[in-house]
Each structure stands twice: as structure tokens, then as C-alpha cells.
Design a binder for these strands. Structure first.
Lengths: 155, 155
DNA sequence: TATTGTTATACTCTATAACTATA
DNA sequence: TATAGTTATAGAGTATAACAATA
């Protein structure tokens, strides 16, 4: 409680704390759509590059291919993604969103906007712009890929 | 890669991304001291309030008492914390840092300062102050307790 | 023989519940 | 009977390795 008097809180700690908070809130919101944050990440990657293979997904996510199989199974069963055998190389699955999957991603987009609005509601438009710029500065300096959430994997 | 062209990146996502990055980097740093971030959190709480019980720790952390036992065991074996039977109520363990534990916490403090410096090295002192102020504004508005990292538990 | 995706297995993390020793 | 801490057990999550189909 009075811990803050003793120890100066730095940018690094605040980022970790607020980041976990933001991620937790987002998880709670998309849970109402029946999705986990990992599900959302997977759906976004498929929406952005339809037809990609599970191997390429595994490589980009930094996880093992068997993990992608396990993550994809429920989304497939729920009718949000479709695995199509590639005509050219029948070992491949070409991944696509279904119509339902596309609709769900619209819900996710609305959810993300509400999340953003809630998190920054205490800031003036000016302050929000400043914060965004400073965060982008640090993210860029730290070599983070835009739009790719690292989870907690390899640094 | 060119994802950023399509989808505007917001404050919420950047916070989650940078927060995970900062947490991961910190984890890598303290791993060199043989500690996990959870270990550090536990040591900090004991350092701040010596003599506290495992129950109070469990309550503050939002975890179950048996979890505290499991987290404490390696720190005890490593000689960083000491469990002293309370004289007043012999069911209790009063938790204290050992001399070695106190020394390790000095290392942790140096590590945290290096971490902070690295993460904000691209900012001018002015920018760093602005970022700190804006993050504190949001953290306060979101009801976050100073100095307490929520992990990914209950929102 | 190499590669895509799947299945089987093992390991880690965490929670629930049963247990002990005190009170 | 209730409480502090421990131990035992079970469930998620994730990685490694063996496997089947295709190239």
C-alpha cells in the first residue's frame, strides 16, 4: 500500500503492470465472444493472409507446429476457420476464415475499440496522442514488430 | 510486417505488447541471478514487511496458500528466506530475508535500474518524464495498486 | 529421404482437497 | 472446532518425439 513511498516506480514496471492489466481486460472482453487472446491472434493472422499454412503460422508465432494444431482444432470445430487441402501440395492445409469467422472478427474489432476507449478515457485527445507517440518510440527502439504480441516467449 | 498499414495500433495494444516485452526482458535479467519474476515479487514483499505470514502473502498475491509454500520452498533451500516459527502462535511462520537474501535484493535493485535505463534509453529526460506521468495517470485511473504486478489473474 | 500436419507422451504450473500441528 | 502450513492429487497448458500421408 504505502510501498510507493519507499520505492520509485519506473517506466519499465508501469509498462509491465499496465500491459498485464490491458491484456487481462482484453481477455475478459473477448471471453464473452467465446475466444481467448491467442484465438484472436490466430484469427487475425489468418484474416490478414488467407491461405497460409500451419507451418508458417507456427514460425511467425514462435511455437511448435503441434501447438498450432491444438489451437486450430477448437476454432475449426466452432466453424470459424476452414482447413482446405492445398491442390498444389496435398500435404498443406490452406487456412481461411469462414463467413462466421469473418463476422466474429467484426465483433472482435468493435470489442478492441471499446477496450481502447475505456483504457484511455482519462486522457485528453492531446495526451492520448502524446502517449501513443512515446509508446511507439520505445516500441520501435526495442525492435518490436508492429501488431505482433510476443506473449512471453523468447526475448 | 505491413500489418501496421492495415490496422491502426492503439494505446491498449502497445501497452500489452510493451508490457510483455518489458516483463520478458526483466525475467531474462533476473534469471541470471537464479530468480524468476515471481521470486522477486515474493522477496520484495518479505523485505518490505518482514515477519509476515504465508497466509497474508497468499491473500495479497491472490493465490492459494499451498502455492506460497511451493514458491517459498526453493527460496528457503537457497538460503534467501527464513521461516521462523512464531513464538506467539506456533502455527505461524514469520518470514524474513536472510543476510544472503538481502544481498541478492541489492543485485535485483541494480538489475531493475539497468532494465529501466535500457528500456528508456531512446527517450530524452523530458520525454521520459512525460511518459511516466501519462502512465501513472492511466494506472491510477484504472485502479492499479502502486507496486503490485497483477500477473494475469482476476481483472 | 524430406516435409506437413497429427497423435502420443511427458513435463510444468497451478488449484483443490486431505492431512498435521497447533490453537 | 477452527486455523497455518504442508502434502497429495488432478487438471490445464505446452513441448518433444513418434507417426501417417504426401512429395
Amino acid at each position: 500500500m504505502s510501498e510507493s513511498r519507499n520505492r520509485p516506480i519506473g517506466v519499465a514496471f508501469l509498462l509491465a503492470q499496465l500491459g498485464a492489466h490491458a491484456a487481462g481486460r482484453f481477455a475478459a472482453r473477448v471471453a464473452e465472444l467465446g475466444l481467448s487472446p491467442a484465438d484472436v491472434g490466430l484469427l487475425r493472422m489468418i484474416a490478414f493472409q488467407p491461405g497460409r499454412s500451419q507451418q508458417s503460422l507456427a514460425a511467425d508465432l514462435g511455437v511448435v507446429p503441434s501447438r498450432v494444431t491444438a489451437m486450430l482444432d477448437p476454432l475449426d470445430r466452432a466453424g470459424l476457420v476452414e482447413r482446405r487441402r492445398s491442390a498444389g501440395d496435398r500435404r498443406n492445409h490452406e487456412l481461411h476464415l469462414t463467413a462466421e469467422g469473418t463476422r466474429v472478427m467484426e465483433d472482435v474489432k468493435r470489442t478492441a475499440m471499446a477496450h481502447e476507449a475505456d483504457l484511455t478515457s482519462c486522457l485528453s485527445p492531446d495526451q492520448r496522442g502524446q502517449l501513443l507517440a512515446l509508446l511507439e518510440l520505445v516500441a520501435d527502439d526495442q525492435g518490436l514488430t508492429p501488431g505482433v504480441h510476443p506473449g512471453y516467449r523468447r526475448s
